[in-house]
Design a protein around this nucleic acid. Structure first.
Lengths: 135, 135
DNA sequence: CTGAATCCGGTCCGATACTG
DNA sequence: CAGTATCGGACCGGATTCAG
């Protein structure tokens, strides 16, 4: 795992340089991940990664999201330039959502984190139960 | 950007396979990122990536975190097996926190996301102001 | 120095009902 | 089909105070 450690060191150094002496508020990472860290954003990004979807298609793909949160999260993603919204003047009207180039560029780095989460899920669960049984 | 698109396609496929027909609740990604998505976890992980730190060292490194949230976040990270806690019976007592192997393995994938956030910050801000001025 | 305990306001988010 | 409006609970997180 020599390569992994070297990469990690690079990122540590890069992080220290980026975070610097500045306050936490203007940390770009915090700003961005506060948005992606909410309950539904990532899930919708990954769902839209499969191609454009209409409103109710998304609703069916993510059954346990409420209409309210689906609307709200999509609007926030659109506001951040990650998702584009296109209205068709058909009857009945339909609205299509798709990832922008910026949104598309998120898939790969997000994919790395997803891989990590999948690979680490077992150890995290084990650590949790171990911690809870002690307490 | 041919390579990027191919990587993205792989992750889309992998995501679709992993999410499957299962409910959102047992999605490992959601489980893990709900934890990392809180206000301070990532920040502490990246701070601890620089090496072991004591409680007040962390407090100084992240000035705008409250004692309560520092304690709470560290305990949660410890519970998830990302951080190890070691108490020294000195006088006055000191407590040292360090990343576990599991926590260390998070640095690289998190680094990719941080890079994306840094690279995309400008475009996201532009999209936000554009969106807000229209509305 | 390293926490725990408590109070409290703000925000997130689900449920429900209604609109064009 | 694609939303909007409103209510209300749950939870996050800050400030303060106390303890080993």
């Amino acid at each position: 795992m020599r390569q992994g450690e070297e990469l990690a060191a690079i990122y540590v150094e890069r992080w220290n340089a980026a975070s610097g002496q500045g306050k936490t508020e203007d940390c770009p990472v915090r700003n961005v991940l506060d948005r992606l860290g909410d309950k539904w954003s990532m899930l919708l990004v990954m769902t839209l990664a499969g191609g454009p979807r209409r409103f109710n298609q998304l609703h069916r793909a993510v059954p346990d999201i409420s209409q309210k949160m689906l609307t709200q999260t999509l609007r926030d993603l659109q506001r951040d330039g990650l998702v584009a919204r296109q209205v068709f003047d058909t009857k009945p009207p339909s609205v299509e959502y798709r990832l922008t180039a910026l949104g598309h560029s998120l898939i790969v780095p997000l994919g790395y984190l997803i891989d990590w989460a999948n690979d680490s899920k077992g150890r995290i669960d084990a650590a949790r139960t171990a911690f809870d049984t002690v307490a």
